[in-house]
Every structure is written in C-alpha cells, then in structure tokens.
Design a protein around this nucleic acid. Sequence first.
DNA 1: GCTCCAGATCGACGAGCATCTATATACGTA
DNA 2: TACGTATATAGATGCTCGTCGATCTGGAGC
Lengths: 117, 117
Amino acid sequence: MLVDLELSPKQKRAAGERCCEPVVYPDVQREHALRMAEVAKALGDPIRLQLVDVLRRHAGKVCVCELVPLFDISQPTLSHHLKKLRDAGIVDSERQGLWAYYYVIPDALKELSAWLS
Amino acid sequence: MLVDLELSPKQKRAAGERCCEPVVYPDVQREHALRMAEVAKALGDPIRLQLVDVLRRHAGKVCVCELVPLFDISQPTLSHHLKKLRDAGIVDSERQGLWAYYYVIPDALKELSAWLS
DNA sequence: GCTCCAGATCGACGAGCATCTATATACGTA
DNA sequence: TACGTATATAGATGCTCGTCGATCTGGAGC
C-alpha cells in the first residue's frame, strides 16, 4: 500500500483517508449563515455602517433631517439606505408628524455579533 | 418667539435648537467604519460567510479540495470567493505542493466583532 | 521531455446595487 | 382650500457582483 504523500486528496478521500480533517457542514449552520450574511450584506456599505454607527451612538431615535447633512449623498439616496437597513431588520422608524425618527432594533446584531466572537 | 413645535427641524437648527440630540460624526469613526464595512461586505455573501464558518470550525488549515464539494458552485467560483476573503484580509492560504490550504487570519474579525458588541 | 492534476485566472453574461433627478405622499399651517 | 416642508418612491444610468466555461500555471510523476 502506498503512503499518504503518494495520494492526491481526492484519492485519499476515495481510500477513506483525507488530506485534512474531514469537513462536514450541517444544514442548521447553513440556515444560520444565510441569515447572518443578510445582515452582514446590509452592513457592507460604508454609508449604511456609518448610519448604524450614528444611530447606536445616539441612544434613542434620530431624525432623518439630522442624518442627511452628515453624508455627502442626496436625501433620496439616504432614504434608500435606511430602507435597506429596515429590510434587513437592523433598524426601524417612527413617524411623528412630518419627521421620521430611526433607531437600531435591540438585538438585531446579536446573532452576527455572537458568531464573530 | 415661536415654541419648538411650531418649528421644523431645519428651522430649529437655524435657531440653534434641534428636533433631536445634535448628531456629530468625527472622521476617526468614519475611517473606522470604512474598514469594518469592507470586512462586512466580504461576509455579506452566503457562500463566503459559510466558508469562514467552516474554516473557523476546523482549527488549522483546510484544503480547497475539501471545500469544493460542500457547496453547489463550480471550482472557479469558489476560488473567486476565497480571493475576495483574502483581499478583505479575512483569510490567508498556504500552498503545499499541488494543494492549497486556507485558514482564517487570527483577529481579522476582531474590529468588527468589537464594534458589534 | 510529456502528461496529469489542483488551483487560479480570464472573458462574458445577467442580475443587482448605489446614485441621481423628478415626482409622489402625507402632514402642518394659513 | 391651497401652499410649504419632510420623507418616500419611481425611473434611469453606470458600475459591481456572482456565476459559468475555458484556459492558464505550476508542481508531481512517468
């Protein structure tokens, strides 16, 4: 019988051996990963991550009109980013008259945070 | 002089008052956010987040040939995702003969992890 | 030399994204 | 009712992304 180094990883697998620890990946972890990737994707834009950062630093709700001058983008574009964050379940908003106040949903980042640490 | 409720947030700002806590955003935090957004973006694809998950679960280095059968994508596509993770500074690789072994760079996710918690 | 194999790169294609301007919605005020 | 203001939506545009098949690279063995 040949020694390990004379077999390719594929041949090793066929022979019941491996070039490294056998890798398995249960469906539970897969679904978990899908949800976290959605959150990470929403945070993957610099503007959106900064938005979340600002909202987190300012406990409570922040008016949209305070957010617009912070970034060098148009108001509709900012609104678009806020919608993306809302769709990802990271933030939510409350309307008071003409103004909209956004805030980070508690525990929205919990799952991703736990996985990262 | 009018009372607060009769002023728009913009008028309040002009008058030195505010509809909410004044929002400031120092450049230090901005640069910080840019780096984290880059990492989050790399983790924002389900395949890539699962790749990092697998690599983290298997301490040490995992052979690419073990990773390919885990996902329903072609080998070039997997290689592309690994490159994205490498470009983001999340993983690195080592070649041993024909095979390439990937591993997560220690502390690569530290900054994002700290921010999230 | 030549051949085989693992992995990376290339080129192309369709889908999605970030951004803008223009417009709509909805509320407050006169 | 009519007007102004804050935010959201619509439509267009150019760029980026994920994916594939085909090809390239370079190490191992004959």
